[in-house]
Computed example of a mutant assay.
Amino acid sequence: MASLDGKVVLVTGATDGLGRALAADLARDGATVLVHGRDPGRIADTVREVAAHGSADRLRAYQADFESLAGVRALAAAVTAAEPRLDVLVNNAGVGTANPGGGVRQESADGYELRFAVNYLAGYALTRLLLPLLRASAPSRIVNVASLGQQAIDFGDVMLTEDYDGLRAYRQSKLAQILFTFDLAAELDGTGVSVNALHPATFMPTKLSHAAPISTIAQGAEATMRLIAAPAEQTGTGRYFNGLDEARADDQAYDPAARRQLRELSEKLTGL
């Protein structure tokens, strides 16, 4: 693994589970960690905990609610204003299938299906808004924490207004992350900014939620750290990994027409 001393890493959803473990590992390895969360109290708790693994002056807290694209824009503006460089963006924030809503369809503040909005659109918008900083900091990396659970996007009903199912919504949002990964990697070819996606652990719970076994979190943190810190020739760009191993995503991820359709839809929905 390459040294992370002097590297600045933004981890979204850093106050729980994988994000929290990853923040601690990054701090332990010498990185400056930008800790993002939604709840100020949980952010403060995370910063205190992560400080035990590294210097407190290398931790900075950022608050934003990803249920709102305005919140995402504000986060990007705050990071751009305060940070002279950004070496790695880890798009980890998201919601699972069980919570919130208990299986009932919910919408974001912008009127979009909640899981598509939080798990995909927020990360899409944040990445687009931070690209100038990532380009200026190249060589830099974007890591999208997706999932082994994937389902083809129904472009006729992306917001799942009919026959809603939380698992389907989750799987669709996670596949959208992978389509975006492949599409963006091609766009950024030759710029020094790499983009990869992963299902963080080889274990896949049957019911996804914010909770996960400690061993699974540790495994996921290890796999994500590899995409952050391993030599570029090992990780490449435009790839999808299942844990530590490169894997094949759902067939739709390799369809240029589907990727273009998602790109055009994302530009429209986010205004970017």
Rank of each mutant, 00 (worst) to 15 (best):
P40T: 06
E107H: 11
A61Q: 12
R85T: 14
A98Y: 04
L129H: 12
G101Y: 02
D45H: 09
V72M: 07
P100A: 04
T46L: 05
A136Y: 03
N144K: 07
N99Y: 14
A136T: 01
L130S: 07
A64I: 00
V118E: 08
Y112I: 08
D57S: 15
R105D: 11
N99F: 14
A76H: 10
G30C: 03
E83Q: 14
L129E: 15
S137R: 05
V33G: 02
E67K: 10
R28S: 13
L86P: 07
R141Y: 01
T97E: 14
T80P: 12
R115E: 03
T97S: 15
R105M: 09
T97R: 13
T80D: 14
E67T: 14
D25M: 12
Y124I: 11
V35A: 05
R135K: 15
R105T: 12
A77F: 03
G37W: 10
D29I: 04
L126E: 00
I142G: 12
V79G: 04
V104P: 00
G111P: 02
S68A: 14
L121V: 14
L129W: 04
V143S: 01
R128N: 13
Y112L: 15
P84L: 03
N91E: 03
A31H: 04
L89Y: 11
L22T: 13
T32S: 06
A52D: 11
L34Q: 00
A78H: 00
A44H: 00
E113A: 08
Y124W: 15
A81R: 15
L130Q: 09
L126W: 03
P84E: 15
A82S: 15
H36R: 03
A146P: 03
A51L: 03
A122D: 04
V90H: 01
R135E: 14
A56N: 02
G71V: 04
G54L: 00
L89T: 10
Y124H: 15
R48T: 13
T127E: 09
R85G: 11
A61D: 10
D25T: 12
N91L: 01
G102H: 12
T32V: 13
D39V: 07
L59R: 07
A146W: 11
A93W: 01
V143L: 03
L134S: 05
Y120I: 02
R28N: 08
R38W: 05
A74M: 09
R105K: 12
A51E: 13
N144G: 07
A93L: 01
Y62P: 05
R58V: 06
Q106S: 02
Y112S: 00
R38D: 04
A136L: 04
V118R: 10
V72G: 05
E49H: 12
S137I: 06
Y112M: 10
L89R: 09
P40H: 11
A23Y: 10
A82Q: 14
A125M: 07
V72K: 10
I43P: 02
A44P: 02
Y62M: 08
Y120F: 15
A27P: 07
S108H: 05
G37E: 08
I43K: 10
T97K: 10
D29A: 14
G123Y: 09
G111K: 01
G30N: 00
L69M: 14
S55I: 01
E83I: 11
V90F: 06
G37R: 08
V33A: 06
V118G: 06
L34E: 09
V35E: 11
N119K: 07
V79R: 03
I142K: 09
A31M: 00
P100G: 11
R105A: 13
D110H: 06
L59H: 04
